[in-house]
């Protein structure tokens, strides 16, 4: 068993997902199968191997710190589920 039902619950919470008890069982089963398959990677000794996070040799991409035209406020609010024409509106926090 790679992952338990309780761990699935915990991970769902981290991921901000709500899962029904049926989904939870299915996910536990499926994730176990998948994670068991991932065990395959342990056949390889990778002690001194440098991890790759980027397949192309690129140095940091710096640019001048200058202000450029960006999205206008009214355009950025256009797709908001709720806004007051100036800001995004969310359920009360405090």
């Amino acid at each position: 068993m790679k992952i338990t039902l309780e761990e699935v619950e915990y991970v769902a919470d981290l991921a901000r997902l709500e899962v029904s008890s049926e989904e939870k069982e299915q996910l536990t089963h499926q994730m176990n199968r998948i994670l068991l398959y991932m065990e395959k990677l342990n056949e390889l000794d990778t002690t001194d191997v440098v991890p790759t996070s980027h397949a192309i040799d690129l140095r940091n991409a710096f640019r001048e710190d200058v202000v450029r035209e960006s999205l206008h406020r009214v355009d950025s609010l256009e797709n908001a589920p709720e806004s007051n024409d100036e800001e995004f509106v969310v359920p009360r926090i405090i």
Binding site: T46, V50, T52
Partner: peptide
């Protein structure tokens, strides 16, 4: 681990 294996594949 997976990122290291990625190096080997590359």
């Amino acid at each position: 681990k997976a990122s290291q294996v990625r190096t080997l594949i590359r």
